[in-house]
Structure formats: C-alpha cells, structure tokens
Amino acid sequence: MELSGVVELVCGRIVVKEKDESFDITAVCTTDMMSDVLHFAKKGELLVTSLNQSQVIMTAEIADIPVVMVVLGKKIEKEMTAMAEKKHITLLSTELPMFTVCGMLYAKGLKSCVNGK
C-alpha cells in the first residue's frame, strides 16, 4: 500500500516527509516497547506506536524502519520532529487509536513484520 494511501486511510497527516507518497508499505510493527522493535522488526516499513518521544525515531533508524506513525493525536514535540528530519524518518500522525489503525491496515492486506521474518 502506498504511503499516501495509508495516510488517507487513517485520516492522518505527514509531519515529516522523507519518502515519496508512492513509497510502498507492506509490513507493520505495532508496539510501544522499543526493544520489541529491535527484536522483531526484520522487514517492516511502518512502526505504529503511541509513544511520542525522540527515542522512537532513534529506534526506527537503528531497526531500518523508514516510517513512524504516532496514534491517538498524541502531541508531537519539536524534538521528535527535529530528530525525524535529522535521521530521515518519515513521521505521520493520526487521531485514531492504535486498534482502529491496525484493524484498517490489516483489512487492506498489510502484514505484521513479526511474522514476516
């Protein structure tokens, strides 16, 4: 699914854009625990989380996940935006809760990157 399609589906917005709108997203990692991202993310393009801190961006960089989505309209502070720009991570925001986001993406055929290993 294209990045623009994901943003549209979750009525989200792009906070930091480092990828083309046509960037293909196939596998998703859903967690708030950063070690889980480091442990499981073998081949994922999107991390969905409710954490709105800079370390999420750092973790995405180390785990090679190019796109991060913060759910439930959690406020994204300047530090997080600045880190995303520095690390070239695309940062998305949505008002929807994690459950709805996952449900919708799953229904569109996106896979969990945990099973995609």
Binding site: V28, C29, T30, T31, F40, V48, M98, F99, T100, C102, G103, M104, L105, Y106, A107, S112, C113, V114, N115
Partner: peptide, 16 residues
C-alpha cells in the same frame, strides 16, 4: 503466539 498487529486485525474484523 501472534503479533499485536495480527491479533488487532482479527479482533477488529470480529468486533466490527
């Protein structure tokens, strides 16, 4: 044994 994403996806379908 499934991931949060997979469980969420299936639950969403069930509840909806």
């Amino acid at each position: 044994p499934h991931s949060t994403f997979d469980i969420a996806g299936r639950l969403y379908q069930l509840l909806m």
